[in-house]
Write a protein that binds this DNA or RNA. Structure first.
Lengths: 218, 218
DNA sequence: TTAAATAATTAGATAAGACTAACAAATATA
DNA sequence: TATATTTGTTAGTCTTATCTAATTATTTAA
């Protein structure tokens, strides 16, 4: 059984290693807001538990076991977010903080019941895939809106950040998952875009926003 | 902000001091399964935080502030139990363990939403009153079934123990809250009773069980 | 290719919350 | 009332998870 703290390290490693599978101590330290020596010592501990491959001065990698256990925590997080939105009436911008706590509840029955009541959902309210009961996650490769070209027609399928402020911003612009977007133009010097969707015929969005929106080409 | 550990001590003090308002270190130690020296030092800490009136070798008493904060934890526990039973379809014997964990979630909105979805319930699935938003609880004085006389007709209104095994036992006997019970006879030597209710015309229940059933006289 | 900057580790300290062993106070019993 | 038992406290240790300061590797830049 992993402690709440260990679960948080595993989850962070899982999320950070999505790209290349490797994470530096420094990255992990910054992401968790925990000083590097503390991270180093936890990596040794998780290495003893066969959850992380750790060698001095080498990048960190989750083992298969570590990936599985991290996946199970993330499964609980995402199921919870879905439950809060679908069954309790929260907005997608409100659920991250609550799920961050509920993901550590130890009760298979509780999450089993959520899953059942939700009808076994495959994605959470931010478009992230929900790992299966073994902790495995189907990795879907969406494009960033920022990587699209002027003229492209795409569908908003997920967001990469779940902070309250960012999602509230999307709410004010009426940008939600499923929204069909057309890229009217891209500013060459800062990567910001002018897009149209629904009733919004001409909205300007910054590069930062574009990088956080994941889309599927139509 | 109290730690999870502190919350558990407060809650235990609250529950144990229902009778006379005072609890001994020994009692608290046994109830929490934590050795006495640990309890003593935590009492000093809670005393510094003005949550407990602590003096060496004197019985423990929650302060007004302590009672309020304990009440708020118990409110979260009982709202959760109600939610699990009413909105998620758990049995009353399954919810204690889960609520024991969820009661420590820090999110007023989460419990506010539960309360709203449940229609502001006054009692949990075991008949215990749910403290209000200030942590205050309406103390209702039911009788123990074991204190009733032969011939009494009563209604089962609450149970004093929420363990899985005990509640499963009540399930098998189809004893639920609201059940009208008539006491047919009482064994003088062990206090066990023969009772009738619903389709059960003659059930024998031990003294231990009678002490855990709270009833209202009709 | 050496010096500077960055990243990582080691060593040692601290706080929370648990423990045991030993002692002291209060209560119960002979 | 004197003694035995039970209850409570003190002192000191352990573990987990954090920190800072100092040191060592590695990487980057001159």
């Amino acid at each position: 059984m992993n402690s709440l703290t260990e679960e948080n390290y595993l989850k962070a490693l899982f999320n950070l290693s999505q790209e290349n599978g490797e994470v530096s101590v420094n990255e992990l330290s910054k992401h968790l807001q925990i000083k590097m020596p503390t991270v180093t010592s936890m990596m040794k501990k998780l290495s003893d538990k066969k959850l992380v491959n750790y060698e001095s001065y080498k990048p960190l990698k989750l083992t298969e076991k570590g990936r599985r256990e991290a996946g199970l925590v993330i499964r609980k997080h995402r199921l919870t977010e879905m439950f809060l939105v679908d069954k309790m009436g929260f907005g997608w911008e409100q659920v991250h903080e609550i799920a961050e706590q509920i993901e550590h509840i130890h009760s298979p029955e509780f999450f089993e019941k959520m899953d059942e009541l939700l009808g076994y959902p495959k994605f959470d309210p931010h478009g992230s895939p929900i790992p299966d009961k073994t902790g495995k996650v189907e990795w879907i490769h969406y494009s960033k809106l920022s990587d699209c070209k002027a003229g492209d027609a795409v569908k908003l399928s997920a967001v990469t950040h779940s902070s309250d402020e960012f999602l509230k911003f999307l709410n004010t612009r009426e940008l939600k998952l499923g929204t069909k977007i057309r890229i009217k133009s891209i500013e060459a010097f800062d990567g910001s875009m002018t897009i149209s969707y629904g009733k919004h015929l001409s909205e300007h969005v910054s590069c930062l926003v574009c990088e956080r929106l994941l889309v599927e080409k139509e």
